[in-house]
Design a protein around this nucleic acid. Structure first.
Lengths: 242, 242
DNA sequence: AGGGCGCTTAACCCATTCGTAACCAAATTG
DNA sequence: CAATTTGGTTACGAATGGGTTAAGCGCCCT
């Protein structure tokens, strides 16, 4: 059963939406204030967040930002639910990492349909990432190598998650900073190198001969989905362009 | 570059949306009738479809259904773009497999933002160039010849990518420097020769008799898309200045 | 306040890659 | 056929990119 977090200060609307979500078979956890919303999400780990932007005590946009920067919540879909219909409001909301933006008043059935779109294509398969001996659990935020638990920091986890969920695709340092650190962050691109190094020290049997994270000289990094090359070779060459 | 299919019968709106999509860096293919829309999509393989529901000659809902039933298009996001704002219209559209539903009139910037949401996290766009035995994968930055991986440097890769994506067109050294090295770069044009040489040594069976990269004496170089050896050639197509 | 932890930057070093000049070979011109 | 232009090839010093280390900073937690 999917769990939905509902953050909405208007009591009538809260009750209406809760009623309809539960009728539809969703579990609902909620808060009518913004202050405790982020803690609620961290504690409850919902599968989706319905978020009012204009809360009396807190800015919903900040909550969304906080969700995106929390590793165990970063991949959770967020739908804004708000009366602010101006163009810039919508743009800001959508570009902040929200997955949808619904303007009040709305049709309940449309809300349900849009929620279901977010769940469409989501399976248990993509909640746990697994490549060879390496496993990432996106809901519990745990990493394992050969079954043994790995200790990753938040940034390490997010970087590895990003690369691992798109195996074979090469990303520039710039792209990685945008995706993992956030568009607004002002950080040197060499920071990425250091994190790659730390990840390799934790997940690679031989960090000098990485099997998981591939460097592509002149382009960036990518997660290697190809099978491991036979060990003990003289020159472990990059597959290409590197 | 992402390709978007635009199916919209209103000429003014078509032009407006096309203009803005292209300004945003998307390639646009389109049809102002519904009848050819599905064939267009099967032929062009867009990365996303913008679909008007109320077309004079055809029902947009049917096109969406057809897209979902075509294996190679089933995963392509579809956004409805329509004046039908009633609740049931929206529900039907969303439940039919559309990924979003935007009611006219809409803000162009919101449309762009919603398109980008569909692309967010998507990486499996078809970005493979293939000519005879030579393959270039632009997402993984890998090159293959007869299935065997090639080792190309970044500059080699970019040069080959540029030539390969415009087969048959002759480029001067000057144009290649602008396109691959950048307008600001101060580099001798003979540098191009050296890179052409290096590429030929890697991809040509007989570098003295190149089958892929053709020299056009007095003009420059071009990627050869014809299978025949370059003995007597027809008129070379020159790239327009710029 | 102190200690621990995680984040970020700067600096160093090495291998690879880049770009140029020079030399050759082939084609074109007169 | 010599002169000239154009492109192919070689070799080498310079520049760049990436791995790595270490140190400084800020934050949270006692």
């Amino acid at each position: 059963m999917r769990k939905i977090a509902l953050i909405e200060d208007d009591a009538d609307l809260f009750a209406l939406v809760q009623y309809n979500l539960e009728k539809e078979g969703f579990a609902v956890v909620g808060s009518q204030t913004g202050r405790g919303a982020l803690e609620l999400c961290r504690r409850e780990r919902p599968d989706l967040v319905l978020l009012d932007i204009m809360l009396p005590d807190f800015d919903g946009l900040e909550i969304c930002k906080g969700i995106r920067q929390t590793p165990e919540l970063a991949h959770v879909p967020v739908i804004f639910l708000t009366a602010r219909a101006s163009e810039t409001d919508r743009i800001v909301g959508l570009e902040l990492g929200a997955n949808d933006y619904i303007v009040k008043p709305f049709f309940v059935r449309e809300l349900i349909a849009r929620i279901k779109i977010q769940f469409r294509g989501q399976t248990n398969a993509n909640r746990v990432l697994k490549v060879r001996a390496l496993e990432l659990d996106r809901t519990s935020c745990e990493a394992r190598l050969d079954g043994a638990p790995l200790t990753l920091t938040a940034t390490e986890f997010r970087l590895l998650e990003f690369l691992m969920s798109r195996p074979g695709v090469v990303f520039s340092r710039e792209q990685l900073l945008d995706a993992v650190w956030g568009h607004d962050r002002a950080v040197t691109d060499r920071t990425v190198d250091v994190y790659i190094l730390r990840l390799r020290q934790k997940i690679e049997a031989d960090p000098a001969n990485p099997l998981y994270i591939r460097s592509v000289r002149g382009f960036g990094y990518s997660f290697n989905n190809a099978a491991a090359p036979p060990a003990g070779e003289s020159e472990p060459k990059l597959a290409s362009a590197g």
